[in-house]
Nucleic acid binder design. Structure first.
Lengths: 189, 189
DNA sequence: GAAAAAAATTAATCATGATTAAGAAATGAA
DNA sequence: TTCATTTCTTAATCATGATTAATTTTTTTC
């Protein structure tokens, strides 16, 4: 729990009282590798904060292939925002990629906290700003780079992360097939 | 100015006093078609809210081709978030696609307002939530649809908007060449 | 309303990355 | 320590959409 408190303190100047009002609503959950926190079509209720481990969100495309939308590792959030905000059935699945520990908070509790805490509002605004910038960059990469370049860029910028997920998941996240990723890796740079 | 006040009121329950503190910092600017509000490499200072007209943000890729990242029409915001938040030189250009009227607010003024107004924090958090969902869907479309399908989907969901921008800009936004878009339009569905 | 500029179309060729189909290597379970 | 499952690789063929180049259509400007 100190984990997330410190994380929030890095973004906003927040009193212990406000922080405790928040952490009081959090629930710790352990998830085994391959276990699901959310399945598509069901009602999504929680935001998940990764204390330890690694999660992924993905959907199944028309051809039945898994497409990874996001990863989350330590000190990051993952959820199906569309489902949480618009109260629609989840389009995404959220699944553990390693044995993990998460803190979860129900969307409704969070909304209630936003009514009373400027700092929490501010914290989540700042998280969303970062997410916005990351999403923007991702589109830019997709518009600007070949598959080979995307792979090399990802590898060079996330060397530690490369060790944590199977290659075929990275291929899915980058938007291509495992066969193609394998080919790209085999080529000289 | 009533325009943006009403827009904000649709998202948060905000007092006139708080609203006025915000609108006091806004500056009205008219932009002719093709005029720039931001050029890449320069220092980005403002968020822009479109009162009337249409803007686009784009970058120039390695091959010298314009890649449109976002459009903004009436009642929507546009900016280079990365540049504003991280104080880096702009990577994006922001340009009018029609004669337009915008309201602009400097990032620093906005940051100051966030310190005092929960409701403004909340409003921008909600805007970012919507942006997050839109960004997410865009990635999903890119992962799930052929060029032809992306065009048809966009056309069916934004019939009015189709009239407002040249086809080659839409092609750029969707991630392909004007030649390909033209081909796709020529095909039977 | 003529000339110029901007936007859209067409068609041929080309390249990136998908698909298919084996098989090899690594990991995990009994 | 063997069997089974998961992951990764290789190679051939195929499809989507890029590139190039020319032409037509539309819009703007004088």
């Amino acid at each position: 729990m100190e984990e997330i408190k410190n994380h929030i303190r890095r973004f906003v100047n927040i009193s212990d009282k406000e922080l405790n009002a928040f952490t009081k609503e959090l629930e710790l959950q352990e998830v085994k590798n391959k276990e699901f926190l959310l399945k598509e079509g069901t009602h999504s209720l929680h935001h998940y904060f990764v204390v330890k481990g690694c999660l992924r969100s993905f959907f199944i495309n028309k051809k039945g292939v898994e497409k990874i939308v996001n990863f989350a590792i330590e000190d990051w959030w993952i959820s199906d925002y569309d489902s949480l905000i618009n109260k629609t059935p989840a389009y995404l699945n959220i699944q553990a990629v390693e044995d993990s520990i998460v803190l979860k908070i129900p969307q409704e509790k969070l909304e209630a906290l936003f009514e009373t805490s400027t700092n929490l509002n501010s914290y989540f605004r700042k998280i969303l700003e970062i997410v916005r910038i990351a999403d923007q960059k991702r589109v830019q990469f997709m518009f600007n780079m070949s598959g080979k370049e995307m792979y090399e860029h990802f590898r060079d910028n996330n060397p530690e992360f490369m060790q944590r997920v199977p290659q075929y998941m990275l291929a899915s996240y980058l938007g291509f097939t495992p066969e193609f990723l394998s080919k790209v890796r085999g080529l000289q740079e």
